[in-house]
Design a protein around this nucleic acid. Structure first.
Lengths: 163, 163
DNA sequence: GGCCAATAAGATGATGCAGTCCGATTAATG
DNA sequence: CATTAATCGGACTGCATCATCTTATTGGCC
């Protein structure tokens, strides 16, 4: 459902969540740990820095770090600049004349659905995702696979394959 | 939210809904009346005929007509073959390890949201949309445009003139 | 057989996602 | 304080998909 780019962003954010507070992690380091193509990851992180989710620091010892506590960064903030969430706010059927007064047959349903979707993204923080990852690591890993491998596996297959 | 192709399909279906029962309407006629590019519309209608939503008839006096009563055709049937709805059925975050037992932070929300979305599409029939169009047509048109204009446009296009 | 209309198949343009490359900028260090 | 090495940032490229148009091909009908 979310695009690959968003997935990359979340993986990187979760990795950054584990770093010592205030520490900058470079793109290469994050890319190596998460399996995301380094150059592409750079673009994504730059965008997140621009929107205020990350701090960036150039030069030796520079890199990226969360601009705030993870619990204060919700998924919509991360994902919204990377994809077109706004289309969820428009009429599903694309009708120009569709508002609360003159509503298309799906208007009410869609209003509720899109509202809940946006709400879910807003109410879920990066801290929640990071905690989930720790939990599944315990279940899947059982100490057999290296943390990095488990980490990558978990996020693989993220995008729309036919069932 | 739905793709342009789906919207075209719905517009065509609504037009077909207004025809005398059993009558076949040609692609050019539908295109002229709905403002959908004729050649592209042909592709869409062929697809809908293949999936059993429309009947098609070749030769003189041929065209397309709904295969069933409008009230018996729901939106999911029309839209599903035209776009990738299935991605709504997967984990939003794309996690492989995400089910009722081990659920990603968005699992429950997303389950409800996607369920309601699919439900809304399933429970809304073409009849519902057609009724809505009739209503908004009254509001938008306000009797300014005569039916004859549409009628003439239709015939101009049938003679193969550019619009 | 000739006409007309549906069907199929292919070319084209636009858009957006995914990924690469190189130049600009900065901090550490001697 | 100049050099150097690390790193960001933006320009550029490839690819898939959507939307559209063009051009055959097939099939019914008088």
């Amino acid at each position: 459902m979310l695009t690959q780019t968003s997935e990359y962003a979340l993986r990187a954010m979760v990795y950054l969540a584990r770093q010592a507070e205030g520490r900058f992690a470079g793109v290469k380091e994050i890319a190596a740990a998460t399996g995301v193509p380094a150059n592409y990851l750079a673009k994504i992180l730059q965008q997140l820095a621009r929107t205020g989710v990350l701090d960036s620091q150039k030069g030796f010892g520079g890199g990226f770090r969360p601009a705030r506590k993870l619990a204060e960064i919700n998924l919509l903030e991360v994902v919204d600049p990377l994809e077109n969430i706004t289309k969820f706010r428009q009429c599903v059927l694309g009708q120009r004349l569709c508002n609360d007064a003159v509503a298309c047959p799906l208007h009410e349903s869609w209003k509720r659905i899109s509202g809940e979707y946006l709400g879910a993204l807003t109410n879920t923080t990066l801290q929640d995702v990071a905690d989930f990852r720790r939990k599944t690591d315990e279940i899947e890993g059982s100490g057999v696979e290296s943390p990095d491998k488990t980490f990558n596996d978990m996020f693989r297959n993220m995008r729309g394959e036919k069932e």
